[in-house]
Structure formats: C-alpha cells, structure tokens
C-alpha cells in the first residue's frame, strides 16, 4: 500500500510517499536524508532513534511513517539554531558526554524530553530517565553531568563547568 504522508519536520512541511510498513526512522533517514537519527537495535531499546513527535520523545524505529502523517516531528538536525548549539547540546560538549556519537542524537532528544517534564532532575531521576537510551562508550557518567548542566542552563542558571573546559 503506497500512501502519501504530509508532516512537519524541523519546522518545514514535507510530503513523501511511503509503504504501510515504512518506519518513521526510514522516512527520515532514507527519504528525507535526515541521517542524524540512528538505528542501533531492533527491539526498541537502544534509543538511538529518539525524535520528538508533537513535542514528545518517541522511538522512530517503533512508529510507522503513516502514524506521523499530519504531525510535527523534531529531529536532532532541528535542535540547534544555525551554528549555535542548544544549551543541552552545549552541555554535552562541555562535559564530554559523547564519544563515538552514535547514541548522542537520541540521548539529546531524550534529555530534552526529560527537562520538559522535570526541569530540575536529580542524578537518580536522570539515570532512571535514560532507561531507554543505551550508550556503550561513556559509562553514562558524563551524560548524567551534561543533562544536569543542560537543565540548569535551561532554567537560567549558570553552567557548573565540572571539568573546567574552555573554548578551544
């Protein structure tokens, strides 16, 4: 079954023809060329594919493209403003919260979802919220620091700068 879907992706209206079985992540990566959203597993657990649909974090590997018809999708490509990183992205950078970068888009999208629902999360709450995001590189230590910093900056507080990093 071919179907034409129309949706908003990163603020721009797009249309595409998909099969019933086309996953949202396939539409994004293969048809719209938005390859920042990754696929790291086939059991909906790794979270590398997390995007926002109508402002809520979802796993784009577990949603059909047709289910996003008429909805608004935000991917990692739409988070920064031009060359200016979002405070959460900046916090990931300050805290070396990414290594190979593969899980990173999903981590950032989940982090933003967390802060939307809980602007001042504790370390425990951050760790629990990441239940659906696997990272094999960082041991999560710096991701947890980054999300705490990103949340603080989004609340209007200064960045803690745990590592004393400076602009290069």
């Amino acid at each position: 079954m071919q179907k034409t879907v129309s949706l908003t992706v990163n603020g721009k209206p797009v249309s595409a023809t998909v099969e019933g079985r086309t996953l949202l992540v396939q539409l994004l990566r293969e048809q719209l060329g938005l390859t920042g959203t990754h696929v790291g597993c086939d059991t909906s657990q790794c979270g590398a594919c997390v995007v926002h649909v109508d402002g809520e974090a979802v796993k784009a590997c577990t949603l059909l493209a047709v289910q996003a018809d008429g909805h608004s999708v935000l991917t990692i490509e739409g988070v920064a403003t031009g060359d200016t990183l979002h405070p959460m992205q900046e916090a990931f950078r300050n805290n070396h919260a990414l290594q190979c970068g593969f899980c990173t888009p999903g981590m950032v999208m989940s982090a933003l979802d967390l802060v939307k629902n809980n602007p001042n999360p504790t370390e425990r709450e951050i760790r629990e919220y990441l239940e659906g995001n696997l990272c094999r590189c960082t041991g999560y230590h710096n991701i947890v620091l980054a999300i705490a910093e990103g949340a603080a900056v989004m609340r209007g507080e200064p960045a803690p700068n745990v590592y004393g990093t400076a602009a290069e």
Partner: peptide, 21 residues
C-alpha cells in the same frame, strides 16, 4: 588541559557520516 572535542559539533547536530548514512 581539558580541551573540548572538535568532533562534537557534527555529532551533536546530526552531521556525522556513519557508513549507513
């Protein structure tokens, strides 16, 4: 010194190029 990574910008903005990309 703790220099922030130069590669981070592309990975944080979805601009990495992995083989499947």
């Amino acid at each position: 010194t703790p220099v922030r990574r130069r590669e981070d910008f592309r990975f944080l903005t979805g601009g990495g190029t992995y083989t499947d990309d």
